[in-house]
Design a protein around this nucleic acid. Structure first.
Lengths: 202, 202
DNA sequence: GTTATACTAACGACCGTTAGGTAGTTTTAT
DNA sequence: ATAAAACTACCTAACGGTCGTTAGTATAAC
């Protein structure tokens, strides 16, 4: 047994039962060792959790970084679509990963609630601003319709987060397959309507 | 002390710390009574939780029912907007209510995970179908653009849930205020574009 | 007199954590 | 090269504490 595989085992428990609902003996049992042996690898339960949380933050940053970088040459609308697909696919492929992630940033352990919330807010805030920048850029190129880029960006994240959230909860509907259509109905809403007709409002 | 106010106090704890993170002694402390006195009102911790959960389900059903009924005479597009506003306002006005609700249907207590998930899926499924029906109706009136009504409906709920979820997490951004803009950017995406121009695709 | 609501006391179970020990491996010193 | 020392990863046993729950009792209301 080593710290890495111990983290993997603990991750499954934390994702499924939450921090408070997970006991070290259950983790140890899955790992084939006794409870106190965990302390040879991590100084406390909270530290074990934090180690996993740090990995997830790094993973999130890496995923966004790669999505933004690899789509840098696309036009703004297709770039946002590519990021949407990239992010959602990344988390959708692993239900445990997704459940832990949502648990982490929605309901972190009470002891570290403030820190986690603060950190996550700043990390996510960066990408909200980045997406907002892309919206503005697209607006300048008259690809997107007029409107508050800030609100567009927040709507973008509402859709993305809601999409992942519902995928966790509702196994009956194939969200992975519906992703493209869900994105498309949003995209059409922010695209600039065809030029030669301006009376869009009802 | 009575069952109703006891539920209110317990609700705050469950919403903030989750089921496993909440202890009966903490609830009793807030209620000004001792822990065993709770058992004069509820036969177990789980029953206390379930009583609150049932209230929330009834509240959810009532809220959707009222939203659908009071908007029955509106055209489909405005009707969906009215429901979006109605639902989001209902939950947005009370952070505790919202946190408990999200915790309930995303991460219910492990002991009753299956039942809760199943019940919620069926309840929510009804409204997904109802919204889908409204989308189809609006399509028949050529208000909405062509597209899979099923996907539109799921996108609708992704946006609504993501909206509420982010409102719980990110207190820094005024989501309550941004609701109308967020809805609007989605609405434009599903509306039928003006008639005299058909080449919308880029 | 019964019922409802509260109490104190205590139960067994489980929690996270520590202490202390034991093999087996690696590092260091001679 | 070999013996001593240190380190690693595990163990058993047990700690103090909290958990949800029950038993038994008292007080007040109807």
């Amino acid at each position: 047994m080593n710290a890495t595989t111990l983290k993997e085992i603990a991750l499954a428990h934390f994702a499924e039962k939450g921090y408070d609902g997970t006991s070290l003996s259950a983790i140890a049992g899955d790992a084939g060792i006794k409870k106190p042996s965990i302390y040879a690898h991590f100084p406390s339960k909270l530290d074990l959790f934090l180690a996993i949380a740090r990995d997830f933050k790094a993973d999130y940053v890496a995923c966004w970084g790669e999505a933004l970088e690899s789509s840098a040459n696309l036009p703004p609308d297709r770039r946002l679509g590519a990021c949407f697909q990239s992010l959602s696919r990344h988390y959708m492929q692993d239900r445990i990963k997704m459940a832990f992630w949502i648990r982490l940033w929605m309901f972190p352990p009470t002891e570290i609630d403030a820190e986690i919330r603060h950190e996550l807010q700043s990390v996510n805030g960066n990408y909200v601003k980045e997406v907002e920048r892309i919206f503005r850029q697209g607006r300048a190129q008259e690809i997107f319709r007029a409107g508050a880029a800030t609100a567009f960006s927040h709507a973008y994240f509402c859709l993305l987060d809601g999409y992942l959230m519902r995928a966790v909860c509702f196994a009956d509907f194939n969200y992975a397959q519906a992703g493209a259509q869900i994105w498309n109905s949003f995209l059409e809403g922010v695209l600039e309507p065809p030029k030669n007709n301006n009376e869009v409002k009802k």
